[in-house]
Structure formats: structure tokens, C-alpha cells
Design a protein around this nucleic acid. Structure first.
Length: 506
RNA sequence: GGCCCAUUCGUCUAUCGGUUAGGACGUCAGAUUUUCAUUCUGAAAAGAGGAGUUCGACUCUCCUAUGGGCUACCA
């Protein structure tokens, strides 16, 4: 009974990968890695109407950015290809024909208009055992007529024949045993006439079987069609190797009702897509986690905890730790409101943990943009190290530490009013002399000398120090004063004092 | 409307019959500080309602309510 673990993430290229889809991919990946199994990426492009160019590349790039590695797929190759459904047409055709030949499926000629009419005239119309007898299909029409219609080029679909009143059991690894009566299922279209391609349901079962998928891990929206899928496995005689089903709870809107959508991100100011996306049709741009300055590790950690927990209070986990701890037993059953505030917090935590030089490297593009792209990396690293505790995103580094790179051009009015007293100009002039006399600008040393000077003159320390800060930073903010002056060239500190005296103390 | 799934602090969640119902985010209050932050400490904050089962129910069963999903020739 021990099967090799093989899971698949099977998005359809109809647009950018939604963050909920990312979560599904992540859980698949964690489970695969934990069990030494394979992670398959299958492109489900059987909806030719909704196909969006660029979406497939987007999916690949998103997963790559997040560190979700694919073992088999369109790009990666593998022994079970092709991994794109539009390239598997003949395969599906063969299996549909098999079902047809065995009388487990039938041909239906009803047009969309006829179906709509039926739905309107009958409130709860469903194409099933109770209605199929009065529709236009191969079950009720003489064989010659069916043949003639097909030969004349009439459009038709293939429908799955579902026996009524059979209890279908779906064993879900998260939800347990779910029993659904087959009577509520309709005779699903297996093969579409519009684009001559199978529907999701058929392609999905055939591919999962042929690709030897052991666990189908997908969103809860698939739970209602799971019994149909079970019935399909039975129709093909594949019950013995039918995959285990796992339906993950959905990601819901942070506020209000319903599942998370693109609009929520726009409204509340957080991305719902991993990467920035430019819609080729509308020309619209949607923000992405990557471009907003999130670290992939933070996004992964945050997402993992939406609908799953390690069973204890641990929150900060690397991909490796997630792989080790993951289990369906600790997946929750109910939908999770998307707590983007916590996502921000995770980013904050990961930024703090990050090595200063690595962080500086991430900050360099911002510096370049501001015109300070040629600043020494070691200097940037030290500056970044001093302010990283107070940021949520890499870009915040600029507003927290801009003074490390450029002298203040103006001084915060409120702080000037509060801290620049009558004799401050005199104090600052004296301070210049004191600093000029310091040979070793190391934080502790400079602090001792300056503080001794303030004490000996019996000046008000708060006023002197804040004025000093005002001169160097431009406002009463920032890290420890003498850490700043240790990093900056002494001449620069003095220049800033002079300029401030000229500007404020005139 | 029909069917399915779910229901612990505002949010994410722990608890798998016996706990002062724990943690985290967010919020608020203190502390530290030469500034702004960070940080630290603390506080407020929950078992949807009703019946059962049981010595005992957040935990098991049923009903109701609420939330979510599905109900296409979309996935």
C-alpha cells in the first residue's frame, strides 16, 4: 500500500497566481519534501477561452522566487509528460472514447440555448437521471440519428453518466469521511464542443492517474466535485490507485464576507499576488509581494501559518523547519481571514534577523534611485544595521536612515521650536570645538567626552543633545547619537553643525 | 433555492472529556531612553445559541443560527 509520494500543483494560466494558490502550492511542496516525494507542476490550460499569455511564466517565476522547487513540469521535464494539458489532447480522447464504449458516458447535443431554457423553466434543473430522458442525447436518440448528426458536423459534448442514489465516499485527510449522494450530482460535461478539449474534471483524473499522483492537495472549493472525481476513478477502474484527497481551507477577506479577492488588496493596501502583474488586456498593474519589499522567507512563513500550525507556539520557521513539522493533522478545517498585518510583522522579524551586508545589498537599488549608488557597501551595512530594527520593509530604510547619506537640507519645524533655545547656537559652536578635539570618534569615547563637557558647563543635556541631533539628522529621530557620529566622517559631522548654525541660529 | 464544509479573544490559532482556556498579530497602559523608533513588562479580549450523552463537555451527538464553498461546454 506504500506508494511513492507524488503531488501536483495544477494552476490554470488564466491570470496571475493568487496568494491562495501560492499557499496551496506551498502545502503540496512541504508534504512532498517531507516524504521524499516529487512535486509536479501541471499547467491546466483546458480553458482556451480564458487563457492569458504570460500567466505560465508568471507562475514559474513566482514559485521560484518563493523557493518552492518543482521536480517535474513543463520546464523541468520528467517521465510523465507532457505537463501541459493542451498537449495531451489525444490522451484524453482515448479515455473519453473508452467511457463512451463502455456506456459510462454519452453524447449530448443540447445547445447552450436549450440548456438555458431548461434551467429557466425548471427552478432546480440539473442534467441528471431525472432529466436526461427528455434531452437531446445518445441515450434517447436512435443510434442512426446520433451518427447522422455527428457526421453532419453537429456540435456535441460528452457527458458522464451518473447513477442516481449511490452514496459516494470521499476520504479527506483533513475532514475525514464525507459522504455525498450521487443524486445531487449532475451528468458533468467531460468533453467540450467549443474548443474540443476535455473539462477540468476529466483531464484532472486522467492526468493524476497517469502521473501516479498519490495525494491531491487542493483548495476547499473542490470539495463539492470530489465525489464526481471518485466516481470517475471508479468508472475507469482505478480505485486501487486513487489518490488521497486533501482539501485545504480557503483564504478569506480580512474584513467583510467572502473569499479573498484582488479588490481587497487594492482597498486595504496589501498585495494578493506574489509578484507584480501587468495585465496584458486591461493594461492594469497589480502589486506583488516581491515588489512591495517582502522577503520570500517571510511570505512563506506567514502563508504556512494560515490554515496550519506546528502544534505548539513556534511561529518563526524556515522552509526546512516547515518541511519537518508539516502535517495534515494540524491543518484547520475552517477558512482563514487573511491577516495581512501579521504578514507585515513577519517581514519585520525576518528583516531584523537578516545579515547587515545582505540587507545592505537589498537596499542598494533604493540608494541608487536616490543618487547614492556608489556609497561603500560596508558603510551601508553599518548604517542599515543601526536602523533595521525599526522597519517593516526594505524601502523604509531610507526614511529611517537617509541622514547617513545626505546632510539635512531642512530642519523639522516642531523639533526646532522645542529644542533650539536662545543659547543653543553658542552651545553648538562650542560643541564643534569639542568634537574637533576628539581623536577617537568611537561611540563610547565620543560620548564620554561630550557628556563630560556638558556636565562641566552645567548645560541642559536634553537640549544640547537634541540640538546636536537636529543639526546632524535634521529632526529628533534616529539611533543613538554617538553611533551615528562614529560611522560618519568627523568632518561631515562638523560641517553639518556649521550649516545648522547658519540656517537655524542666524 | 439545493447540496457540502465549517464555527475558541477583533484576527491567526493551541486544547484531541477534567486547564486559572495557552501563544502570536493588532489595540491600550507602563518601563527604558539625550530624540524618534525598537525593545521589555503588563492589561483588556474567546468556546454562536439550545437540547442531549457523561460523574464531568470548548472537546462527542442532534437541532437552530451564522460563515464559507459549490451549483457552467471555468478551473
Amino acid at each position: 500500500m506504500e506508494r511513492k509520494v507524488r503531488v501536483r500543483f495544477a494552476p490554470s494560466p488564466t491570470g496571475p497566481l493568487h496568494i491562495g494558490g501560492v499557499r496551496t502550492a506551498l502545502f503540496n511542496y512541504l508534504f512532498a519534501r517531507q516524504n521524499g516525494g516529487s512535486m509536479i507542476l501541471r499547467i491546466e490550460d483546458t480553458d482556451s477561452q480564458r487563457f492569458v499569455p504570460g500567466a505560465e511564466d508568471y507562475i514559474n517565476e513566482s514559485l521560484r522566487w518563493l523557493g518552492i522547487e518543482i521536480d517535474e513540469g513543463v520546464r523541468e521535464g520528467g517521465d510523465f509528460g507532457p505537463y501541459k494539458q493542451s498537449e495531451r489532447k489525444e490522451i484524453y480522447k482515448k479515455y473519453v472514447d473508452q467511457l463512451l464504449a463502455e456506456g459510462k458516458a454519452y453524447i449530448a447535443f443540447d445547445t447552450p440555448e436549450e440548456l438555458n431554457a431548461a434551467r429557466e423553466s425548471q427552478p432546480n434543473f440539473q442534467y441528471d437521471a431525472s432529466t436526461r430522458g427528455s434531452m437531446r442525447n445518445s441515450l434517447v436518440m436512435p443510434a442512426e440519428e446520433v451518427k447522422a448528426l455527428i457526421e453532419s458536423g453537429a456540435q456535441y459534448v460528452v457527458r458522464f453518466l451518473i447513477e442516481p442514489n449511490v452514496d459516494v465516499v470521499v476520504n479527506d485527510l483533513i475532514r475525514g469521511r464525507v459522504v455525498i449522494n450521487s443524486s445531487i450530482l449532475d451528468d458533468k460535461v467531460l468533453y467540450k464542443s467549443a474548443d474540443n478539449l476535455p473539462t477540468y474534471h476529466l483531464a484532472n483524473i486522467v492526468d493524476d492517474h497517469l502521473m501516479e499522483v498519490s495525494h491531491v492537495i487542493r483548495g476547499e472549493e473542490w470539495l463539492p466535485s470530489a465525489p464526481l472525481h471518485v466516481l470517475l476513478y471508479q468508472a475507469f477502474g482505478w480505485e486501487d490507485t486513487m489518490p488521497q484527497f486533501v482539501h485545504l481551507p480557503l483564504l478569506l477577506k480580512p474584513v467583510g464576507n467572502g473569499k479573498l479577492s484582488k479588490r481587497d488588496g487594492d482597498k486595504l493596501g496589501f498585495p494578493v499576488f506574489p509578484l507584480e502583474w501587468h495585465d496584458p488586456k486591461s493594461g492594469e498593474t497589480s502589486s506583488g509581494y516581491r515588489e512591495q519589499g517582502y522577503l520570500p522567507e517571510a511570505v512563506v512563513n506567514f502563508l504556512a501559518l494560515l490554515g496550519w500550525n506546528p502544534g505548539d507556539d513556534t511561529e518563526m520557521m524556515s522552509m526546512q523547519e516547515l518541511i519537518e513539522k508539516f502535517s495534515f493533522a494540524h491543518c484547520s478545517k475552517s477558512g482563514a481571514k487573511f491577516d495581512y498585518q501579521k504578514g507585515i510583522w513577519f517581514n519585520h522579524e525576518y528583516l531584523i534577523k537578516m545579515d547587515d551586508t545582505d540587507l545592505a545589498l537589498l537596499f542598494m537599488p533604493v540608494l541608487e534611485e536616490k543618487g547614492y549608488g556608489n556609497v561603500d557597501l560596508a558603510y551601508v551595512a553599518k548604517a542599515v544595521g543601526m536602523v533595521k530594527g525599526r522597519i517593516n520593509f526594505v524601502r523604509d530604510l531610507w526614511e529611517q536612515g537617509d541622514f547617513f547619506f545626505q546632510a539635512p537640507t531642512e530642519y523639522a519645524e516642531k523639533d526646532v521650536k522645542k529644542r533650539w533655545k536662545e543659547d543653543t547656537t553658542t552651545h553648538m559652536k562650542e560643541l564643534i570645538t569639542v568634537i574637533e578635539g576628539i581623536d577617537d570618534m568611537t561611540s563610547a569615547n565620543a560620548e564620554k567626552i561630550v557628556l563630560d563637557w556638558i556636565a562641566s558647563k552645567e548645560y541642559h543635556m536634553g537640549n544640547v543633545m537634541n540640538a546636536f541631533r537636529l543639526c546632524v539628522v535634521g529632526a529628533c529621530r534616529g539611533p543613538h547619537m554617538f553611533d551615528i557620529t562614529e560611522l560618519m566622517p568627523k568632518a561631515e559631522v562638523i560641517a553639518r553643525l556649521r550649516r545648522a548654525i547658519d540656517t537655524i541660529g542666524k
